[in-house]
Design a binder for these strands. Structure first.
Lengths: 237, 237
DNA sequence: GCAAGTACGTGCGCTAGCATACAGACAATC
DNA sequence: GATTGTCTGTATGCTAGCGCACGTACTTGC
């Protein structure tokens, strides 16, 4: 126990916990490194560990018609992977795909459930996070239906920028096509347009955000709406 | 108390509860009639009552760009409206719109929370229902992105048929267009096609399902997937 | 019985995104 | 340094769904 550092973990959900609850939980966590494009869960399989991303971020992808998929959530150091455990279900509803390589804390399901039972603040925090996730899921559904690829790409880049904690991150057009549920060529066109507007630059999978403000203007309202929901529910306390 | 009948309410979530828990809950419920197209909640507003549809069914619609919307959930007598309360959030994430007029049981939020605290079986049941709702939300998101209007319409008709407990129900093309996020003309075309295939018939808003099997063949996989998820999580026990 | 509203059908031009295919640039590896 | 794989750009033809507009039934209400 004394070997566990008292410094807050670099995860916002954990940071929001009272010191004692957080340290209790951290005592059962192990640091892991997630590598790019690693699949942590497949949809429909049992969940062995819960992850708190610290330096990494993870996509939630729902499978469609065997070969395609669609991103329905993005988890960075503001969130948790495996949230359905608080609903008493240990089957992953979505595929979890590492989008940004980096560090995370993980805890086994039995220990997580034990700590969840023990810590009321943890329960509260995770319930609120689930609410926000649901809202974002619906927002994404609507966005995918109505908005153009370029605006959706801009939104995705902003969301990723928020979670990457760096201006440059790695993601290829073909990967983006899968995530956004469009053709690769559609991404190339949209990305070219954003590049011509000097909002981003990229080279063989390394994308750099040049002009965040401009990107926000190019994105659909969904980005702002999403942030507002987050602030309202999780930001307040 | 003795005036409350011991017969199970015609709502599957309530039916799954142990007798004592159910009767305790029912004692605080009042029967109400919901009328067609009635808006029960607006997105972002406080939730005053929780509803258990018995003979009615309700659409959850997420607003987009002020004027449009998109259905992200459908609640019949297998479900509950106001589920986010189990997450400790009393703000409706979606607009709740009565899709099929009929009976429901409703309970005020404070009383609901009191009963929720008291009844472990109720907690378990509602958590599982929330999991299923989330899965369906993601399924709908993907469906809206990839599948054609005709298949989506067929799916919607099947889902509604399941919840209407009748072969005929009332819904106009313009309403369907709003729900599915397409133009009215798109619905007219798809509905015409389904009618030519003798799967449905309709006249001024009264739609009749003629051939359920055929409709299932015309619908996308999403309908079946959704049912499987429901059975797996809520059907088992 | 006439007016106004509601519900459905049709037509036309347009565009975003699709499927497919190919080519050039760069990287890694042996 | 040659081969193979990865990443990006470009082109062509196609289609589902869009926006808009108008026409036609049927229904309701004064």
């Amino acid at each position: 126990m004394s070997s566990i550092p008292a410094v807050p973990a670099a995860n916002r959900l954990l940071n929001a916990l009272p010191d004692s609850d957080r340290q209790q939980l951290l005592a059962h966590c192990e640091p892991v490194d997630l590598s790019f494009a690693e699949v942590i869960y497949l949809a429909g399989t049992r969940i062995p560990h819960v992850y708190f991303p610290t330096g990494s971020f993870i996509s939630l992808v729902t499978p469609v018609d065997d070969d395609t998929g669609l991103e329905v959530g993005l988890i960075g150091n503001e969130g948790i992977l495996g949230i359905t455990l608080i609903l008493g279900v240990d089957i992953a509803p979505f595929q979890a795909l590492v989008q940004g390589a980096g560090s995370a804390l993980r805890i086994s399901v039995p220990l997580f459930l034990q700590e969840l039972e023990r810590s009321r603040p943890l329960q509260l925090e995770l319930k609120r996070y689930l609410y926000v996730s649901m809202s974002q899921l619906a927002q994404t559904a609507a966005c995918n239906r109505f908005h153009l690829v370029e605006a959706r790409l801009a939104r995705w880049l902003l969301m990723t920028h928020d979670r990457a904690h760096a201006d440059t991150f790695h993601v290829t057009h073909i990967f983006l096509a899968y995530i956004l549920g469009v053709r690769r060529v559609g991404i190339t066109k949209a990305a070219l347009s954003l590049q011509e507007q000097k909002l981003i630059s990229y080279r063989r999978g390394d994308i750099t955000v040049l002009d965040r403000g401009g990107l926000e203007a190019a994105a659909c309202e969904c980005y702002r709406t999403e942030r507002e929901t987050y602030e309202r529910i999780l930001g307040a306390q």
